[in-house]
């Protein structure tokens, strides 16, 4: 039986991406999504694929400082850009306060949505430090959590915002 050929190499451009501070160069098929590139090729499995059509938010990562859906962006679109994932943002300590608050409040159950939720929450903490409870709810509405009922998550984010306001 004759096999058809693999995708020719010209359809797999070379990209260079700074992932969690490390420069990574790879050839990737043009159709490969950023989330699959991170998970399958770099082994960064902390970001999850929940729906692969941009709704659930489990694949949320940061590209050049802005949160994006890893399932709606192609890996080639990340060429020359900086990508931060839950692994890097945990190691750098940037998410430390939120992670502590989430832990204290049990703002997670199965944990599948949690990395994406934390990135969305950090986006709010950094960009909207005066957010009200309903604004927190609104901001997190792009990230599904099926376990918690959201209340503990909102409580945890509220805790962090309140602590920050107190310390400044």
């Amino acid at each position: 039986m004759r096999r058809k050929k693999e995708i020719p190499l010209e359809h797999a451009p070379e990209i260079t991406v700074t992932v969690n501070g490390t420069i990574v160069t790879r050839r990737v098929p043009a159709r490969r999504h950023l989330i699959d590139f991170l998970r399958e090729e770099l082994g960064l499995t902390g970001s999850h694929t929940g729906c692969e059509h941009g709704v659930c938010g489990a694949c949320t990562v940061r590209v050049d400082g802005r949160i994006v859906r890893g399932c709606l962006m192609l890996a080639v679109q990340a060429d020359g850009r900086r990508v931060d994932t839950i692994e890097g943002l945990s190691d750098s300590g940037e998410l430390g306060e939120l992670q502590e608050a989430f832990h204290r409040r049990n703002a997670l159950q199965c944990g599948f949505c949690t990395p994406g939720m934390l990135l969305a929450a950090q986006d709010l903490v950094a960009g909207h430090p005066d957010a009200s409870r309903s604004e927190i709810r609104e901001h997190l509405s792009g990230n599904y959590c099926r376990c918690t009922g959201y209340q503990a998550i909102v409580d945890a984010v509220e805790d962090v915002l309140a602590a920050r306001r107190k310390s400044t």
């Binding site: 499995t45 970001s47 992670q99 989430f102």
Partner: peptide, 16 residues
Amino acid sequence: ARRLLQGRGTYVDDLR
């Protein structure tokens, strides 16, 4: 919960 908070859990799709 700590490992899940850092994205260091192991769900089936994470295994190779």
